[in-house]
Amino acid sequence: MKYLCLVYGEEQALQAMDDRHCVAYDEEIRGSGQCIASEALQPVSTATTVRVRNGKVSVIDGPFAETKECLAGFYMIEARDLNEAIQIAARIPPAQVGSVEVRPIRPIRETVRAMQKEEASHGVR
């Protein structure tokens, strides 16, 4: 099962962390095959929020929500279940100064593919 681990924290606290620790952990879980993708993000001051309302694109400077703790990076991981995902998340270095939100991935492509297959088989009949 895939989980997305979203790393949140106060930027100052996160900037004080040693990047080498983060990269070392990243290499470790990539090596074990538990990490599918991971990136660190530029500071929230670089964020742009895009919305489309009534066909019009609105672009606003800043993050989706102004909060003290902001999104700083993510890890897409593969774990047997939530217990394993929690263990992996707990070892992400910024978990010590910020928070890591663990979200299961919804198999949206598989669901749509199954729906299309079903529709196609009805069409044949």
Binding site: R80, D81, L82, N83, Q87, V102, R106
Partner: peptide
């Protein structure tokens, strides 16, 4: 179900 909370007694330090 959706977050797959396992049906197990955790082992070791957990």
């Amino acid at each position: 179900r959706d977050a797959r909370i396992p049906y197990e007694v955790p082992a070791g330090p957990q």
